[in-house]
Computed example of a mutant assay.
Amino acid sequence: MLSWTEFLAAKGSSILSATGEHLLLSLGAVLMGTLIAVPLGILLARHQRAASVVLGISSTIQTIPSLAFFGFILPFLGIGIVPAMTVLFLYSILPILRNTYTGIREVNPAYLEAGIGMGMNRRQLLTWIQFPLAFPVIMSGIRVSTVYIISWATLSALIGAGGLGDPILAGIHTYDAKLIMAGALPAALLALLASWSLGFVERAVTPRGLRQR
């Protein structure tokens, strides 16, 4: 049996390549989810009836088991990165959408009244009051979504999308614990690093008064 040093010398480059694929897959899905969910959440904050329907649909998607979802989408999009990123994108939407909607809705009405008294229009209220105050809540949703997607992206190897799921599956098939750890440990570290990095961004852009509070 190979030692860890010999194992890393033999498999190190392929693990690095799988890590790059995993990052591309995960962050690409979260980025697309953010670009869709944040504007949609802001829009839904003004339309209560539509919000209940859209959030209900997003919640239903979130409850579908990952393996079943990947299997369901195969006949339509085949195998590879496109179907995997599509499924991960759909999974990424709910935490971001829900937090955006909640953050915008829960802005203190007194702040909005003050803005209106200063002559602000709806766009200015959103830009200068609602969005900055809701941003910590929105970032929390993005953090949760990112951590989930990095974890779930390991299953995308089942449909040929690559990533850190490949060494995990290979290790399971060959009863090789080192291969399993070579996929699982980097995936866990990526999730922790993403959570810490997004937390740092959240603190950096949060208004000082809210940060102190």
Rank of each mutant, 00 (worst) to 15 (best):
L40V: 11
I73V: 15
G171A: 01
G160P: 09
L190M: 15
I116R: 15
L112I: 09
S26A: 14
I42H: 01
F7T: 04
F200D: 12
G119C: 06
L158S: 14
A18F: 12
R213L: 14
V30H: 05
L40I: 08
L55T: 02
G78F: 02
A84G: 06
L125W: 07
W152R: 11
A10E: 13
L169P: 02
L77M: 08
F70Q: 07
P167R: 08
L55W: 05
D176H: 04
E113M: 08
A9M: 13
P136M: 05
L2F: 15
A9W: 11
I79M: 09
A50N: 09
S195C: 11
R98K: 04
G165A: 10
H173S: 14
L2A: 13
L155D: 06
V137D: 00
R49N: 13
E202A: 12
P39V: 09
G183T: 05
M1K: 14
A45C: 05
M1N: 13
V107Q: 02
S3W: 03
V30C: 05
Y101D: 01
V144M: 13
I129H: 03
F72M: 12
S14M: 09
S58Q: 02
L185Q: 11
I104Q: 02
G80R: 01
M120T: 09
S145P: 01
T86R: 02
V30Y: 03
Q48G: 11
Y91A: 03
S151E: 09
G41W: 04
L190V: 09
A157N: 04
S58I: 06
M1F: 14
L189K: 12
S17A: 11
G20Y: 05
M120Q: 12
T63N: 07
R211E: 14
A184V: 15
F70M: 09
L126C: 07
L88Y: 00
R203P: 07
Y101I: 06
Q124S: 13
G117D: 03
G165E: 12
T127Y: 10
Y91R: 02
L155I: 14
N108G: 08
G115L: 07
V54W: 00
G103M: 01
L55S: 01
T19I: 05
Y148V: 15
T100S: 02
I150E: 05
R122L: 13
G163Y: 04
S59Q: 11
L16S: 08
A204I: 02
P83T: 02
A153T: 08
Q212R: 15
L97C: 06
L193C: 15
R49E: 04
